[in-house]
């Protein structure tokens, strides 16, 4: 499977993955409308990451005009310009599907507040 790995390795974009599940992120996504291109920002909560290698994808959930919207982005997509982390979340699950059944305050994820010493450790 060497050649398959080679094809996949050159497409991977590890720099995009600077967020974790439970984070609130802004995804800057390139949208092509006919001949013009523009960047759309999609903000929401990362509730899941799936697959491995180039097939990695993540699901972002937000409430738009009272309707829950979930969008799945392939991590390696060339149309993702960057992913900005707005808020870190403190979570105890790898998949936050339980959020779907909740409304209002119960659908919130607590903010991750890290000690200065921990941040230091992580950056080392």
């Amino acid at each position: 499977m060497d050649l398959v790995r080679m094809v996949e390795a050159e497409q991977e974009k590890p720099e995009v993955e600077n967020f974790r599940i439970g984070d609130t992120v802004k995804v800057h996504f390139n949208i092509v409308e006919g001949k013009t291109e523009r960047v759309q920002v999609y903000e929401g909560l990362v509730i899941a990451k799936n697959h491995s290698g180039v097939r990695r994808s993540f699901t972002v959930r937000k409430i738009s005009y009272g309707v829950g919207v979930e969008r799945i982005f392939p991590l390696a997509s060339p149309r993702i310009q960057k992913v900005e982390v707005v808020r870190r979340g403190r979570i105890r699950r790898a998949k936050l599907y339980y959020i779907r059944g909740r409304v209002g305050k119960r659908a919130k994820v607590a903010e991750l507040i890290r000690k200065k010493s921990d941040i230091k450790k992580a950056s080392e």
Partner: peptide, 14 residues
Amino acid sequence: KVGMSQVFGEDGRL
């Protein structure tokens, strides 16, 4: 035949 994979096209589609 080596196997199957996926590639992003020029328009960004898989």
